[in-house]
Amino acid sequence: MARMTYLQAISDALRTEMRRDPNVFLIGEDIAVFGGAFKITQGFLQEFGEDRVIDTPISESGFVGAACAAATVGFRPVVEFQFIDFISCAFDQIVNYAAKCYYRWGIQMPVVLRGPTGGGVHAGPFHSQNPEAWFAHTPGLKVVLPSTARDAKGLLTAAIRDNNPVIYLENKFLYRHYREDVPEGEHVTPIGVAALRTVGDDLSIISYGATVHHCVEAARMLEKEGASVEVLDLRSLVPLDRKAILESVRKTSRALVVHEANLTAGFGGEVAALIAQEAFEYLDAPVTRVASLDVPVPFSPPLEMAMLPSVDKIANAARSVLAY
């Protein structure tokens, strides 16, 4: 084990896989000489050389399309978006090329598309978004969102080894705020397996990404108030660990779904629908959601804080569900 930040865990996964498999290469803006806007690939150019750590012009559609193609002929490219907000510039290559290639022709495309998501750092409308629902809605893409350093490493390793396009969404607030012991060397977190972060009998809080930590915090507060709360971290949206969700809800009979992305047409609606359909007779309260308000992420701190979910908002919603 080694103590690592979430960010270091991402670097560690990339480095370990690049040492293990010569077909892995990295491509993106300012990743080589500069080591990446967040310094995830610092020192990689020196170790792996410029054929495997490729600086690009500002051309997301161009380098995503190129990486996807290389993936069909034996490479395992990992694409970095400087901010995930600019993934929209490559939308066509992702949803119409990457997502459909294997389905149409049976040709595998093992490419990882990764980058920083999330708000709370006062970065304004174009450096704060959470786009997971756009991609979860597109059949053919796997979508993963680590909430811990261990999973950041394990899921990225699994994503690189996966034979499909994987959208790997990092949370930039967690980059340097979250630190824990992470297994050294190869470490895999299978894609499609959720994890329980707390165990309890009265309420299931289902979340993923950064808000998992808010949920755990809220669970601790509620525990002091006498409630026993289970926090399930989905880790992967596609494939979704339906079994884990349903087992938890069938046990607790109450469900609260939480994510940082805004509410409407967010992935939480999918989870709520699954519970409503498959665990209806077990429920003692309406399935409830906490998410960001349905507006772009504003710059000014009071606005941004009002928009984002918080421990208090989650705890309050949980209290209502528990009291129903």
């Binding site: 500002i58 907000d85 600019f86 929209s88 304004g124 409308p125 174009f126 450096h127 504003p298 009071p302």
Partner: peptide
């Protein structure tokens, strides 16, 4: 923008001839 946008970005056609544009993604 009342706090929604960074100090860097402004759109004000009437007073300054600066039309609204998407200043996030390059080009």
């Amino acid at each position: 923008s009342n706090g929604r946008e960074l100090g860097l970005f402004l759109a004000d056609i009437k007073n300054f001839g600066i039309p609204p544009y998407h200043n996030g993604s390059m080009a």
